[in-house]
Design a protein around this nucleic acid. Structure first.
Lengths: 336, 336
DNA sequence: CTGTTAGCGCCTTCAA
DNA sequence: TTGAAGGCGCTAACAG
């Protein structure tokens, strides 16, 4: 039952003594084709295991029904959650997803985008890497008529489409919770200073303290380069302060993991001597003996979903529209 | 600088008063074209930002330089590690990867394969879902000339290409370690009984006990459906035995997480009252206060890499060859 | 309702 | 060394 050559419209037409266009129309349920003809065509098509040659259709329609997704790393649960939703939205729209991991390497990121372009994807969803500085690729793609929507880790530019989590509301909630538990010495372990995401966190942190009339102490704000060593150094710096903080908001869960480990090794009791809340990216807190008090959830699934639907709107739109910015509120989730 | 219509070979030919065929040949460094012509063509091509239309090439060459990857879930670190290596191998070969998550749903799995087929991928890499029983899709793909290589979770059939971890060597090592630590009451929390992977584990477990002259007790072998509830039920069953085991090998890390949590809740001390080793799929053990003694590593990266290179061999081969089976040895990695 | 014609962009004989 | 012609499979404008 193996077909050496897959059946074509031509073949069906020949056998049925019809023209290829009639067959094509019949297969696509074109209204102008008689019911009987349509039936005959479909029956034979089924018999021959006919399947339209997508590559021919892509070629003709100048559309590939494919979108590209570029993100730093699939092994981050945040992104695997996001891409799952993206996949779902794409499937509904009958689109296929091509995915590439930049691994925070700008060159690799560029190569992936190049591939996506030559593959003529209809659109791109992207979360940029930590080290990406050069945004010229955006014009490259948009110049080729490929719309692009950024999500989560987005460039600090006004004229691009982006979907992000606000970072602020969660931070304010976190500080509210800390304060209501009696904490006043609240520190921030922030990410690399030049990351926009770090600037936002810092701003929110300061705003949160201000709301409670707590003075901002410079020594309570430390940075990490997000490596395990950097994370450890950051917490040690805080612990060595004369008046060490009793509560810490950390850049993300991975930072929190390293930091909490270091705290344990120092012989301090988690959730007693010192308390943590971090921006969430889904380690398996529920299995830990001493998880952080709470996490600031950023809803990767929602972000991915929204970014994808936005992209499809752009793909379907004829005109290029004004850049769209969508902001999701982050929210504190207790890990109790 | 935005091109409304991307440049084509025809366009270049028109401007240079050459024929399209000459331009095509020049761009492909065909030896029969004069050096000067080739230069002129290439220069103009660069100027016009000419890029070959892949969709046209795919169509003409009857090849898409695309491979599909189907796996249960990206959120399992095992698979994200595997797909990263697959991506790398594919990139080297200048192939693109289309990925789909089955989420252990056979219908969804089938839909993904259908999509891959209509997209005319050149080959498929696949790890089947837990609930997949019907393997007819294999003929569907191979009938269409699409080679398929299974990895990790593979069908229990002889005539397919597969790359797996052996499961046995790691289990034997695990039992060796337990025994050398003085354990004799060694239990197995296995997966669903009808999973080939469960049968293999059980066989290895029995072999391991036999090697040490330890009698196999039926009540020390329990099964879980891999849900959190099933995992908890399994360990409770073991704990309720009159002579409860002091050492347990569990189906995988996720089972171990649930199981160890239940053990803690029962007030037992991990790594004291009861010890664990599990087949690894990468939770963040290094951050845990009481990780399992060791993990049986299955090298997802290696498996993915091997499966991918195998697939490319099959794609490049003219003839259909005998099915290939590759087995990686699993190995015990201490979590000390 | 159905057929004819033409062309998407590229490559590849065949002919000059 | 170059050009002309044809075709991959499908669709769509234009005729009947």
């Amino acid at each position: 039952m193996k077909e050496s050559k897959p059946a074509t419209i031509k073949e069906i037409a020949r056998r049925l003594k019809l023209s290829p266009s009639t067959v094509s129309r019949a297969l696509n349920d074109h209204p102008s084709i008689g019911l009987v003809t349509t039936e005959r065509v479909k029956r034979l098509a089924a018999e021959l295991n006919y399947e339209p040659n997508q590559t021919a259709i892509f070629f003709k329609q100048r559309k590939t029904f494919t979108v590209g997704v570029v993100l730093p790393s699939l092994s981050e649960p945040f992104f695997s959650a996001a891409i799952s939703e993206i996949e779902n939205v794409a499937n509904e729209k009958r689109y296929t997803v091509i995915m590439g991991q930049s691994l925070d390497d700008p060159d690799r990121e560029l190569r992936i985008l190049q591939t996506l372009k030559t593959h003529r994807v209809d659109g791109v969803l992207m979360s940029i890497g930590k080290n990406t500085q050069d945004y010229r690729f955006i014009e490259l793609l948009e110049g080729a008529g490929i719309p692009i929507v950024f999500f989560d880790c987005v460039p600090d530019l006004g004229d691009v489409n982006k979907v992000v989590s606000d970072l602020e509301s969660g931070m304010l909630e976190a500080i509210d919770v800390f304060v209501s538990c009696g904490h006043h010495a609240i520190a921030l372990i922030n990410g690399p200073a030049l990351l926009p995401a770090s600037a936002e966190r810092k701003k929110a942190y300061i705003k949160g303290l201000n709301q409670h009339g707590i003075p901002v102490k410079d020594e309570y704000i430390v940075n990490t380069d997000l490596t395990p060593e950097g994370n450890e150094a950051a917490i040690l710096q805080l612990l060595s302060l004369p008046h060490r903080p009793s509560a810490v908001v950390s850049f993300n869960d991975y930072v929190a993991l390293d930091v909490m480990k270091a705290v344990r090794q120092k012989g301090l009791a988690l959730n007693q001597d010192i308390h943590f809340i971090s921006y969430a990216n889904y380690p398996l807190w529920k299995y830990m003996e001493n998880p952080p008090m709470a996490s600031i959830e950023q809803f990767p699934g929602e972000q991915g979903k929204k970014a994808a639907s936005l992209l499809f709107e752009l793909i379907d739109a004829k005109e290029r529209s004004k850049p769209v910015h969508v902001v999701f509120k982050s929210r504190l989730i207790s890990q109790g």
